[in-house]
Amino acid sequence: MDTTNHQVALIDGGSPPSMIDRVERALLVLAYLLEIEGDVHLPMYESFEAKLEELRSKSDVRQRARERLQAFMGQGATPLAIGAGQ
């Protein structure tokens, strides 16, 4: 695990970049390398694209689940009431 970026982010008072942000940055670097060095980096670029899509998909699922729970709790219910039929 690379802790350099994490430590810098904390020194600045910010939070560490999310994995999605890190992969997006890596894709920018790889896009640049593809332009100047050619297709040698193409497999890695495709791999990072697939990883980004996977991360975004998981994030979307988590967000939908969070919204469902918030809507449920907005009706005055608690998570414990889910199995009890309210």
Rank of each mutant, 00 (worst) to 15 (best):
D39Y: 08
A31D: 08
L34S: 01
F48I: 00
M19W: 13
P16R: 06
P43T: 11
Q63D: 15
A26Y: 09
R22P: 01
K58G: 13
L52M: 05
Y32L: 11
S59F: 09
V29R: 14
S57Y: 04
G38W: 04
K51H: 06
P17L: 07
E53A: 06
A50G: 10
L33R: 06
F48K: 11
Q7W: 09
E46Y: 12
V8C: 13
E46K: 15
K51R: 13
A50W: 03
V61G: 07
P43G: 06
E24Q: 11
E46M: 13
K58M: 04
R25C: 09
M44K: 14
L52H: 00
E49G: 13
V40W: 03
D12C: 07
E54M: 07
I20M: 11
G13D: 05
L52D: 05
A31R: 06
R22A: 05
E24G: 02
A31G: 11
L55D: 00
K58D: 10
H41E: 10
E49L: 09
Q7M: 13
M44W: 04
P17S: 10
D60E: 12
F48A: 09
D12L: 12
S59R: 08
Y32N: 13
R62H: 08
L28C: 09
L27N: 05
S18G: 14
E53S: 12
I11L: 10
S47K: 15
S59H: 06
L55F: 04
R62D: 13
D21T: 12
L52E: 02
S15A: 15
G13H: 03
R56M: 03
L10D: 01
E35M: 09
A26N: 10
R25E: 12
G38E: 02
G14I: 06
R25M: 09
K58A: 05
S59D: 15
V8M: 14
V40H: 11
L55S: 02
R64K: 13
L27R: 00
F48T: 03
L27P: 04
A26T: 09
A50H: 01
S47E: 14
G38T: 03
L34C: 05
K58V: 06
S18E: 05
V61S: 08
P17M: 06
L28H: 14
F48E: 07
P17D: 11
A31W: 00
A50T: 11
R25A: 06
Y32E: 14
P16A: 12
R62E: 07
S15T: 12
P43Q: 07
L10S: 06
A26Q: 15
D12P: 05
A26K: 15
R62A: 09
D21K: 13
